[in-house]
Amino acid sequence: MMLDRFELIAPTTRLHAAWLEAHDEWGPGLHEDGFGLGPSDEVDSPDGFAAWVARLADAPGPKAGQAEPGCRYRWLVEGDRVHGGIALRYGLDDYVPQFGHIGYGVRPSSRRRGLATWALGRILDEARALGLGRVLIVCDADNPASAKTIEHQGGALESVQDTEHGPARRYWIKI
């Protein structure tokens, strides 16, 4: 597959219909890792979608002299088709130790094509530019595809821990 057709872009209202198509493919719920979708987000209407995209763009980031939590969201797209999302969480908060610096998801019809590995490599470049020396990535213990993606990018398994969602594998990647 030619991965040079793909890009990571900031969330945009321009892709509302394409994002809804990807979301529908996942089925009901909030399980699209990397999109930052919360239980109170209403994304079906243009106004609700625009408010959600604005919230993603305004995710707090570090300010001069502070280590505030922040998050950078990117969508994995090919033209006007949304294939997935990836989030880079940075700063110091309680979320990163539990869920990791990076979370991602690829829609079911786009899996097994190397897209997650490609997107993870690109977001690691952004983590490097932010000055992160290493990142934590957490995946479900019963998700061998995600484990393989992380290991392909240099992830070293730290542990497997029980969480409220079941066992999770914790990896560190040195940047």
Rank of each mutant, 00 (worst) to 15 (best):
E68Y: 14
A119E: 03
R169D: 06
P108V: 07
E68V: 00
G65L: 12
E151A: 15
G27Y: 06
C71L: 12
L88W: 09
G36N: 00
G155F: 00
A141H: 06
H101A: 10
G70H: 07
S159N: 13
G100Y: 02
Y95F: 14
E32V: 09
R169E: 11
P11M: 04
L20H: 02
S159V: 00
Y73I: 12
I175P: 03
G91V: 08
T149K: 04
R134W: 09
V160N: 03
T163I: 10
A67N: 15
A119L: 00
G36V: 00
W52T: 03
R128T: 14
V138S: 06
D140F: 09
A59T: 10
A129F: 05
P11E: 05
G133Q: 14
V77C: 11
D47C: 04
F49N: 09
E78R: 15
Y104E: 12
D58L: 12
A119Y: 01
L120A: 05
Q161K: 14
I86L: 12
D44Y: 12
E151R: 13
L3Y: 01
R134P: 03
E42F: 02
L132G: 09
A67R: 15
Q98Y: 11
W118G: 03
S110I: 01
A18F: 06
W52K: 01
P62E: 14
L76C: 15
G103N: 07
S159G: 08
